[in-house]
Design a protein around this nucleic acid. Structure first.
Lengths: 334, 334
DNA sequence: AATAAATAGTTAATCGATTAATGCAAAATT
DNA sequence: AATTTTGCATTAATCGATTAACTATTTATT
C-alpha cells in the first residue's frame, strides 16, 4: 500500500499536481481552478484519505510549523502544566511541539538546541539552564525567533515571559513578618539564575526594610542532591540558638521537601514555624493547616509565550520586536 | 545570512553535493571519496557551522526520525515522568519526540493522530483514551509502527507495555485484608478502560476469595469532575452503616483526592480506615503515617516501549513482530 | 601493449508540495 | 475580422539531502 500523495490524486483524475495542490490548499480562486474540478479533487482526496506530507511542505516553504520547547524537567508539575498549555495553544495555531528535557544541564541544553535547529523548528520556547546565556546569544545572532519563559538573563534584551519574582517574594516575606515572624529563614538554590536570585533578593530586602535581616538564616541547596540538602538546611535552621520562626522556600521542589523535612522533625507548623512556599502542590492539601504559597499564572505564561513567539515568527526575521512580559504571581494565603 | 546547505559547502570547495553528502555521512569509503577531500569537507562543514536539514533528509529517505507520543495528560506526574524517560531513550536513539495531549478525549486523540501522521512520524507511543480502539485499528491497517503503554485493548493483538494490573490489585487488596480490614471500599473511574477495570477486578476477586465482597462498597467517579466525585464517594463510604475499614484507590489522581478527602473528614488513617493507593506521590510523605502504594516501574516502561517501537520501525513494515510486555509493579508498604 | 581492476568523483533522478511563468482555448472587445 | 481579455490548467523550477548509475583517470595484471 503506497502513500497517497498529490501525484496519486493527480493521476487518478488525469490532472497536474499543481492543480491538485491549488485546489486542496483553498487557492482554487487565485490559482484559477474551476469550482467543478476543485470539488472533484477535494472529493478524491477524501476518498483516498490523502494527508499532506508536512516534511515536503516544510522543506518547500521553509517553515516546519514546529516549535521547540526546551524544558528543564518535564516531570516537574510546574513545567508539565506549562507544557500542557503551551501545547494546547500551539495546536490551535497549527504548530506541533517537540519537547526536550535539559535536566538543568548546560551540555544537554546545547546538544538539544542543535537537534531542534536541525529539525528546522520555526521558533523556540525555552526555560534556559544556568549559564546558558551564550546559547541564547547564538539564537539572536542566527535571528531565530524565541521566547524565554520562567527565567531570563537580566542583561539580555530578549523576548521573555516572567513573573514578578522580586515583588512577590518581598510581599511573601512581608506577610510572614506581619504574621509575627521575627527570625525568618530562607532556603534557596545555590546557583546563578536570575529568577531565583530575585526571589532571594525580595526576601532580603523585606527583612532589611523591617530591620530584622540576618544573613546567617540563608541556606543554599543543590539541585542534584536536593533531598539531603534540604534536610540539612532544615536541620541547621531549627537548631539555631536564635530560634527561627518562619521560613521562605524559593521553588516548588524546595517547598515540598522543606515541608516534608519539617514534619519529619516534628516541627509544629505554623505554631513553631510559619512557612511560605513557592508554587501550589497537591501535597499541601493533605496537611491540617493551610499552607500559604505563591501561585504562578502558568496558563497565562503559556499563552503569552506562544503569542510573543508567533508574532515574532510572523515578522519573518526582519523586524523582530522584543518584549519583556511580566505577569504577576499571586499570594494565596487562605 | 543564508542557510548553509550541502550546496554551500560544495560550492566553496568546488565539488559536487554528492561528494559532500558522502563525506559528511561517513560514507567516504563506500562512496569512494579520498580521505584528503573528505577531511577538507568535514572541516569546511565545521567552519560554516553546517547543520543538516532534517526535513529534507526525512523526505528523501522516507523516515522523519520522529516519534509521536500521545499522552493523556502531561501535567500528571505519572505521564510527565513517563514522557521524561521516553524522551531520554528516544534521544539516545536519535529520535525526537512530538508530544500531544488528549486530555482523555477521543475527539482530541483522533485529531492529534492525524496531525502526527501528517508529520510523518516513524512510529507512535500511545496511552489510548477510552473507546479509541478504532484509531488503533487504523494504525494496524496502515501498517504504522506503534506501542501502547499503560493501557491496551484486551482483544487487540498489538505491541503493548503494561503492568500486572490485576495481580497487583489483588495483592494490594489482600494486604489490606491481612492487615485486618473486613469491609473494604473501592474508588475507581466510571469508564471503559481495560487497565482500570483490571484493577477493579483484582479488588473484587481478592474480596470474593476472602468471602467478604460487597458490591455496595464500590464507588465510581468521573475524570471531568474528579474532586467533587471523590468527595461524595468518600462521604458515601464513611457513612455506611457497616463501617468501612479500608479503601483501595485505583489511580494516582483518585488516591490523592481520596486521601485529601479523608483528612477533610477527620478520618484517622490508618486507625479508622486503612488505605492502599495507586502510584507514589510526594504528598504522601507529608503525612505522619506511611501511605502504602503500588509503585509503577515507569522508567522500565519507557525503556521497553522505545525498545519495542524501534524494533518495529526497523523491521520496516514487513515482519511486524507483536509483543505484549507486562512489567510487574511493586507494592510499597514500608 | 592490451586489458582488467581500482580509485575518485560527477550526474541526475528522487522524495512531495508549492508557485512563478506560461500556454491555450473560448469569450469579449474594438 | 483582428485583437485583447479572461478562464483554466500545465510546465518546470525549487526546497536540501541521498544514492544508483555513470565517467574518467590511474594502477595492476596478463
Amino acid at each position: 500500500m503506497k502513500r497517497v500523495s498529490l501525484k496519486t490524486i493527480a493521476e487518478q483524475l488525469g490532472v497536474s499536481t499543481a492543480t491538485v495542490s491549488l485546489a486542496l490548499s483553498g487557492k482554487a480562486k487565485e490559482g484559477r481552478v474551476s469550482e467543478e474540478l476543485s470539488n472533484k479533487i477535494v472529493d478524491m482526496a477524501k476518498e483516498l484519505n490523502y494527508m499532506p506530507n508536512t516534511l515536503a511542505k516544510g522543506l518547500r516553504i521553509g517553515k516546519s510549523k514546529t516549535i521547540g520547547l526546551v524544558i528543564a524537567d518535564i516531570s516537574n508539575v510546574f513545567f508539565g502544566t506549562l507544557a500542557l498549555h503551551i501545547q494546547e495553544y500551539a495546536e490551535k495555531e497549527g504548530y506541533a511541539i517537540i519537547i526536550v528535557n535539559t535536566n538543568e544541564r548546560f551540555d544537554k541544553m546545547e546538544k538539544l538546541m542543535q537537534l531542534l535547529k536541525a529539525r528546522q523548528v520555526d521558533g523556540f520556547i525555552i526555560t534556559p539552564t544556568e549559564n546558558s546565556k551564550e546559547l541564547i546569544e547564538d539564537l539572536i545572532a542566527e535571528k531565530l525567533p524565541f521566547v524565554l519563559v520562567d527565567r531570563s538573563f537580566p542583561d539580555l534584551e530578549v523576548n521573555s515571559v516572567l513573573i514578578n519574582n522580586y515583588d512577590i517574594s518581598y510581599k511573601s516575606t512581608e506577610k510572614l513578618i506581619q504574621q509575627g515572624c521575627r527570625n525568618i529563614g530562607l532556603i534557596t538554590y545555590k546557583q546563578n539564575q536570575f529568577h531565583i536570585n530575585e526571589r532571594g533578593r525580595g526576601y532580603v530586602e523585606a527583612l532589611k526594610d523591617a530591620g530584622i535581616f540576618n544573613p546567617e538564616n540563608i541556606e543554599e541547596v543543590c539541585y542534584d542532591s536536593l533531598k539531603s540538602d534540604v534536610d540539612s538546611a532544615i536541620y541547621n535552621l531549627i537548631n539555631k540558638k536564635d530560634k527561627i520562626d518562619g521560613i521562605f522556600f524559593t521553588t516548588n521542589s524546595i517547598s515540598i521537601n522543606g515541608v516534608k523535612s519539617l514534619i519529619k522533625n516534628n516541627i509544629n507548623v505554623p505554631k513553631e514555624i510559619q512557612i511560605m512556599c513557592f508554587d501550589e502542590s497537591e501535597a499541601f492539601y493533605l496537611l491540617p493547616y493551610m499552607v500559604p504559597f505563591v501561585k504562578q499564572p502558568i496558563e497565562q505564561m503559556a499563552e503569552k509565550s506562544m503569542e510573543l513567539l508567533i508574532a515574532n515568527i510572523k515578522m519573518d526575521k526582519v523586524n523582530i520586536e522584543i518584549k519583556q512580559c511580566i505577569i504577576d504571581a499571586e499570594l494565596i494565603i487562605e
